[in-house]
Simulated scan of single mutants.
Amino acid sequence: MLQQIYPPVAHDYAYELNKDMHFAAAHYIPHDDAGKCRRVHGHTYFANVTIAGDELDGSGFLVNFSTVKKLIHERFDHHTVNEDELFDDADPGRYPTTEIMARTIWEIVQEHLDVQPNKPRCLQVFLRETPSSYVVYRPKAVR
């Protein structure tokens, strides 16, 4: 993977972890305004997930890098995103646009982090759809 520069997230946590990954997936946007994107097409998505926290777990990790990859890569790689239960062709708030996919990745990661004893937080998801188009999703600050 090429070295990427991601927008930094201001925070006062002691640790910050960033996990880069890519996955190949198809999708379509079920809305008339989507133009050609209404048709099924694919992308090689590049994602960066930023996680932060003050405490490490019992194995000395904030969160294991491989866990973060499994949560996203295994779920979406070589799949049609629209078929995932988290997306819905009848709900514009759940179409698999890059914006909503970035938010959904955050939801998946944060749901996993919420049950960890060291309580890390997912601060940002950067999702690149094409070489010239990307989205950054940052949830409203919660601590």
Rank of each mutant, 00 (worst) to 15 (best):
H31C: 10
Y15V: 06
V63C: 10
C37N: 07
V68S: 10
G60S: 04
I29C: 09
D20F: 09
G42F: 09
Y45G: 02
Q3F: 14
R38C: 13
Y45D: 03
A25N: 08
V49Y: 04
G53R: 01
N64C: 04
Y6S: 08
H22W: 01
Y28C: 13
I5P: 00
H41F: 07
G60A: 04
V63R: 02
N18S: 13
G60N: 04
Y45T: 01
K19L: 07
F65A: 02
L56G: 07
I29Y: 04
S59C: 04
G53A: 05
L62A: 08
K36P: 06
Y6R: 11
G58I: 04
A52H: 02
R38N: 09
V63L: 08
S59M: 13
Y15T: 02
L62D: 14
L17A: 09
G58M: 06
H11C: 01
A26T: 08
Y15W: 14
E16Y: 01
A25G: 12
M21V: 02
L17I: 08
T67N: 12
E55N: 09
V49W: 03
H43D: 11
A25D: 13
P8M: 02
L17H: 07
L62Y: 09
T44C: 15
H43L: 09
Y13L: 01
A10E: 13
M21L: 15
G35T: 05
N48V: 15
R39D: 06
V49R: 02
F65W: 09
F61Y: 15
D33Q: 05
R39E: 07
D12Q: 12
L56Q: 05
Q4W: 10
G53N: 01
F23D: 02
G42C: 12
K70Q: 15
Y6Q: 07
D32T: 05
F46T: 12
Y45E: 02
G58L: 10
V68Y: 03
Q4P: 00
I29W: 06
A52L: 05
N48P: 00
M21P: 00
I5M: 07
F65K: 03
H11V: 01
I5W: 03
S59F: 13
P30V: 10
I29L: 15
D33E: 09
A10V: 14
M21G: 11
